[in-house]
């Protein structure tokens, strides 16, 4: 699951706005496969961690109630242009991915 995350980090004044898109099916486990009639097992991102400069900015815990291919945006202070922001996710089936972007 390489490159499942796209990040845009932009500095506006003293606030950095981070927008990211992740590629993930986000199955709730409550949906039926229309072809086989079987339940599709739950498969969703359960944890997203955002770090910058060795500090954790935000940890998000999600359920399958987040839409497919999740979008997340948040703001934080204390970073400068050129600093790096890392987004890492883990899902309920043990999958994970992370991506780092420079603040522009």
């Amino acid at each position: 699951m390489a490159n499942s995350i796209k990040i845009r980090a932009k500095l506006k004044g003293d606030t950095t706005q981070v927008k990211c898109l992740m590629t993930h099916p986000m199955e709730t486990g409550l949906r039926k496969d229309s072809k086989t009639g079987k339940m599709i097992p739950a498969h969703f991102i359960s944890e997203v961690m955002a770090t910058s400069g060795g500090k954790t900015i935000m940890t998000a815990y999600w359920s399958g109630g987040i839409s497919k291919n999740p979008y997340l945006s948040f703001d934080f202070k204390g970073a400068a242009k050129g600093d790096e922001v890392t987004i890492a996710w883990k899902d309920n089936q043990g999958g994970s991915d992370s991506e780092t972007a420079k603040i522009s």
Partner: peptide
């Protein structure tokens, strides 16, 4: 939270150092 969902809690966001309480996402 989405009150009408079978399991209402959709997400929690723990804010760390420097985080501004302003988050956006897309929910079901």
């Amino acid at each position: 939270l989405a009150e009408g969902n079978a399991t209402p809690l959709v997400a929690t966001f723990e804010l760390g150092e420097g985080a501004v309480p302003d988050v956006s996402t897309r929910i079901k």
